[in-house]
Amino acid sequence: MIASAAFDILLCLLIVTVAVGSVAARDLFGAVALYIVYGLLLAIGWVRLGAVDVGLAEGAIGAGLTGVLLLGAAARLKAAPDPPRLRIVPLLLCLAVSLGLGAAVLSLSVPQPGLVPLVQENLAASGVGNPVTAVLLNFRGWDTLVESVVLVVALVGVWALAPDDLWDGRPGAAQRVKRDAVLNTFGRLLPPVGLMVGIYIVWIGAYAPGGAFQAGTVLAAVWLLAIMAGVAEPPPVRRPLWRALLVLGPAVFLLAGLHGTLWGAFMSFAPAKAKTMIMAIEFTLTLSIAVTLAMLVLGRPRRPA
């Protein structure tokens, strides 16, 4: 008991220290490195709270994918002039926003006993056994649908940065990797295992921690590794098949939601069909999330198709 309390206190201190270190770091690379450590520690914190789903998402997306995106941004900003120095007015504004948000959250009245009993009562009708998946895909499917669309919109924003002559080009730099070199071997060794882990995470999400976002991140990482290792080539952004993959998940989700209007309300699933529909949404959403996240990391088109 005392040992676990000591561990939690130490973990909290570490999280706060690393967060302050990330904000106060002098160079961009150091700030991003500490931010990744911060995300991993936060994932451990979520696991300590029993929120394994959130821990997985934080580790995969918060630390891993966001970390890679920020590293890429930091590398591109290197050529930029001196990083801006600390300015008093923006600092005060940020502090005011943070304090205001904190006060707003603290002043919310939390109805006891919350929504947990309601979710447990209706879990049988949701089609899945994992309450987190039931909330994300069924009870509050709206939020997840919009989240998956936001990702695609973000990618459209990245692609819009392409210069005119590369509008249909390939993203990412050309990789020169020797066959049978270390990275090439690793890039051929890992994808089979990574594919299995990704499919496992989305499948297990029906009754244990896991789901489309975590699995999609794993699959995106596998694909990016294969690209870096010279095993796969990123497709030109114009190819219809890949564009279809990007919107497949949100489209299936939307169709399933529309189907709900036939028997009840928009975005509601009949209990008898809920499991099938949720699994269809989860698997297609995983594919779309994987392709979208990987393409976000690859960035705008950089070379001719």
Partner: peptide
């Protein structure tokens, strides 16, 4: 064991790179 093997492979590769 899979976690250990994956970490071994990743660490060996990253160390080389």
């Amino acid at each position: 064991v899979l976690v250990w093997l994956l970490t071994l492979a990743a660490a060996a590769t990253v160390a080389q790179l």
